[in-house]
């Protein structure tokens, strides 16, 4: 017994060391900066100062919620219809979904600039057809579009994989008990895919709420999200590390609260999911 425990400890130790160095230590550094002033003396002034960023927080959450809802509305039916297709079509759609993920994040976002810009692809086409130039770039809509585009694979994949695992005999049982297609969807498929939906929501909401690059490139400077604020502060030099860390800490706590609420939600349905 002891031997086994020892062996396991040896085997797992690299991972423990790894997570200590790359997860715990940075977090501790962040907490340290958040709770000290420039001279390294304990203070909660940084946390008191985040009131100025209320609007950025609010906007970030609002955009992230909208982006998550849109992603979900697109992804759920898509995943559902994918499971109905034959295997080779499923594979091909999977490839198409994953393809952008293999492209650099910055390039993906830049490509939307060339599409949405005032002299970009869409407006060029519109102008040719005799329409006025539409203001597409530097709008909230463009930011949300960017989020949806960048993060949608993280919604489709978990939902799709949960749906694939639903045993066909359960659907047959439901038909057997009188369920037509819609009733099967409502009474069997949707309840059984909740775990996938929850992890999809988490995996889209978390990066959306903390993103900074998308809003800068597609939203101009008008929409300051919390991620941007943190980035600006860090770029502004060591004097601002403390307040930037405080913002990060608050953001992290908020995200953790969201996850906890969501997990509670799934546990009630007995589908407890960890991202």
């Amino acid at each position: 017994m002891n031997n086994k425990g020892f062996g396991r400890r040896i085997l797992t130790s690299p991972y423990i060391v790894w997570s200590a160095i790359f997860v715990i230590v940075p977090l501790l550094i962040m907490v340290y900066f958040a709770l000290t002033d420039n001279n390294g003396i304990f203070t909660i002034q940084n946390l008191q100062g985040i009131g100025k960023y209320k609007k950025a927080f609010g906007l970030s959450i609002l955009y992230a919620v909208i982006a998550t809802v849109i992603t979900l509305v697109i992804s759920y039916p898509m995943a559902y219809f994918m499971t109905k297709m034959n295997i080779s079509s499923q594979r091909m759609i999977m490839m198409i979904v994953m393809l952008p993920m293999w492209t650099n994040f910055l390039i993906r976002t830049y490509s939307w600039i060339t599409i949405l810009a005032n002299k970009g692809i869409i407006n060029t086409v519109l102008n040719r057809l005799g329409f006025h130039t539409l203001r597409l770039i530097n709008t909230p809509g463009a930011v949300i579009l960017g989020m949806v585009y960048d993060f949608i694979p993280y919604m489709i994949l978990p939902i799709y994989s949960v749906m694939c695992k639903i045993d066909n005999s359960l659907l047959e049982a439901a038909s057997d008990l009188g369920s037509n297609g819609f009733s099967r969807l409502r009474r069997v498929i949707i309840p059984l895919s909740v775990p996938g939906v929850i992890s999809g929501i988490t995996m889209v909401f978390v990066p959306s709420v903390s993103t900074f690059y998308i809003s800068q490139k597609l939203g101009g400077n008008k929409t300051l999200l919390i991620g941007d604020a943190i980035e600006y502060l860090f770029n502004a030099g060591p004097d601002f590390y403390n307040i930037a860390s405080a913002l990060s800490l608050v953001l992290m706590v908020m995200i953790l609260i969201c996850l906890a609420v969501m997990n509670k939600f799934t546990n009630e349905d007995d589908g407890g999911v960890i991202i």
């Binding site: 045993d167 005999s169 359960l170 047959e172 049982a173 439901a174 069997v188 309840p191 059984l192 349905d269 007995d270 589908g271």
Partner: peptide, 10 residues
Amino acid sequence: IFQRYALFPH
């Protein structure tokens, strides 16, 4: 009654 029951796990 299915060979493997097919009860609804949820």
